[in-house]
Design a protein around this nucleic acid. Structure first.
Lengths: 196, 196
DNA sequence: CCGCAATGGAACACATGTGTTCCACTACGA
DNA sequence: TCGTAGTGGAACACATGTGTTCCATTGCGG
């Protein structure tokens, strides 16, 4: 193992963690801010990450690992596609500030590159087993997942009163509903479409 | 009217429009970029907006006006609350890049300050007439509206192939479903159940 | 005790963005 | 024709962030 000294890894991790927190609510924050948030001198930060870009890519790697871990915890192969996606959503929700970061940099980053195909697989399964509306493209389902995830996270952040559990409940309910297939093929022209 | 000269207003508007476009995908873009996007010298830009903050607040005002106009076009007083919200969603969708801007700066800006109460009114109406699930807090409904709106807009932007109409259709379907109340009549006791 | 690894601070050069001043150019109306 | 409003470019000082170098410090193991 190249465990240089153990303490170096700890410092390195502290910097990355601080970077995730600060970059989450200000992607343009300065290295000095990150350094002091990590309780580390700016010199030390540069000793670990020569350039800003190096830190950013380290953050991306860390984020990617956390995403993969979350996906593993979600046991995507279990149950219907819809249920699996819901479990994934719960795990992702626990990623906290990382959500903002991923969402803000969304648009072609390498974040999920690896498990993007496995997500598509899950969604595909869901459309076939009837737990996800087959009319919705998989890409759109993913967009929905991320946007509602982000909405839930910032909703929680803006309301110190509401509990994590309550918000997660709202998220679960609305995401489930959004993805649910139309219960009936016949389009009624009446008011409410309560299943007769 | 203080229509200084007509040409001044045109220049001013060009600057604001360019600012909205550029700030939408990079909130930290430079004034020089905005100036050249508006086909205007940086000097001229500073002649209209002494400081960056002045331009930003002018953009906020413009954005607020467009929001109000969209809300008026949506005729929020017509139909059920859910229908009104859907119409509003369609109008908002036409705001284009402004969506990204509003969404990125979301979190206490003055954007909607004025019609926020009217939106709450509409949602309240929807919960009573059965078109919006009463379990969902109005705040959460708004969060959903904005996040899905943003998701739809960026979905469109990342896929030059898909038509505006198609994306708007996806948005409408998923938002409607997300807000739809539980069909409360006796459940089929099937496998998948939401609230235990 | 000495020496080395790890760190923090000060100082520097550099790049970019900002806000200002000054001057030249163009179009248009009196 | 001239004067003025509107504009654009060049240059400047200033602020902030970045990347680097150099040196002093702390702490731990030999």
């Amino acid at each position: 193992m190249a465990v240089t000294s153990g303490i170096k890894n700890r410092t390195r991790q502290a910097i990355i963690d601080a970077a995730i927190d600060l970059l989450a609510d200000n992607p343009a924050c300065s290295l000095g801010d990150i350094a002091s948030a990590a309780q580390v001198g700016r010199t030390t930060l540069h000793r670990y990450f020569a350039e800003r870009a190096d830190l950013l890519s380290a953050v991306a790697v860390e984020g990617g690992q956390r995403l993969v871990r979350a996906a593993r915890l979600a046991e995507l192969e279990r149950g219907t596609g819809g249920e699996a996606l819901l479990r994934l959503c719960r795990e992702y929700f626990d990623l906290g500030p990382l959500l903002s970061l991923i969402f803000s940099e969304q648009g072609g980053e390498c974040w999920e590159a690896q498990d993007e195909t496995s997500l598509h697989t899950v969604i595909e399964r869901g459309r076939r087993d009837g737990s996800i509306d087959p009319v919705l493209p998989a890409d759109w389902v993913l967009s929905l997942l991320w946007s509602q995830l982000y909405a839930a996270w910032s909703y929680l952040g803006e309301r110190p009163g509401s509990s994590r559990h309550h918000v997660l409940d709202l998220l679960t309910r609305t995401l489930t509903n959004a993805l649910r297939p139309e219960p009936k093929p016949d389009p009624v022209r009446g008011k409410a479409s309560a299943t007769p």
